[in-house]
Write a protein that binds this DNA or RNA. Structure first.
Lengths: 138, 138
DNA sequence: TGAGCATAAGACGCGGTGTCTTAGGTTGTC
DNA sequence: GACAACCTAAGACACCGCGTCTTATGCTCA
């Protein structure tokens, strides 16, 4: 009863840890094959490891994270959801769970809780200046 | 094998969804009791619901998210980890998993997608200055 | 024709998580 | 003192997500 499954967050798919490891290869290698991913994630792995990757790919495809090209016998895969998009989704989910849906408290909390290094502070300041300047022009 | 449990992220505790619901009450009510939380989360709930909250509290205490005052028979609880701190932890963990530890992509996404008004931009800038000034003094 | 590699589909085990059961101690009231 | 009503403490439980593995089948080429 305490686990609220509102459609607002439930409908936007995320990836598990193993799926993310697969997506990393899909992002870095264009038209990657299952074999290539398996060889990289499980060096010297057997059939079981190969089909593990296959199952992960199958689930990622079901969640529309990647597209399959089956024109050749060994299928090729391309990312639909990029890293930036995934970051955005997770930030949004986080804002939903922790801040009533607003992204602003995420920023202010980060600043207030002193969880940023001096360097990151400077980066953030610069970023804000840039965006607010750009915002003004429109 | 694909699930990497490096101590960098594993050692920093997080809360589950039900635990978060409890923390919300701990944050909002000073010196809250289990009874008060249970009555709010499970209106008209029985013994089972009460002990559910109790178990969640026990786990939160084990993770040092709250402190127990057992001077009275009905124990009182106070938050150790605040919402801001929790947000910071989750953002850090996210940077770790998705950006190799760098916060920059997260900050970029946050600033761009949090539709800040000009006024909020100024407020945030001010906040950053204040905190970074305080930082320098120590 | 058989070896090698691909896909497809299902089953499995483990661990996390929310929940519940049970036992026992303290307080207040008749 | 006895009893009800509250509290704590500790463990067990069921469900489910997730990573993994098994098995069956098909295509390609020496």
């Amino acid at each position: 009863m305490l686990t609220s499954d509102m459609p607002s967050e439930k409908d936007i798919p995320d990836v598990t840890e193993a799926e993310l490891a697969v997506m990393e290869r899909v992002w870095s290698t264009p038209d990657v094959t299952i074999r290539a991913i398996a060889d990289e994630l499980y060096p010297g792995g057997g059939v079981a490891h190969y089909t593990t990757v296959q199952k992960l790919i199958e689930r990622l495809e079901a969640k529309d994270f990647l597209r399959r090209d089956n024109s050749q016998m060994a299928h090729r895969f391309t990312a639909i959801v990029g890293r930036e998009e995934l970051i955005g989704r997770r930030l949004r989910a986080m804002a939903e769970k922790l801040c009533g849906g607003s992204m602003t408290p995420l920023l202010t909390s980060l600043v207030e809780s002193s969880k940023l290094t001096a360097k990151e502070f400077d980066e953030l300041r610069e970023l804000i200046d840039k965006v607010s300047r750009k915002r003004k022009r429109s």
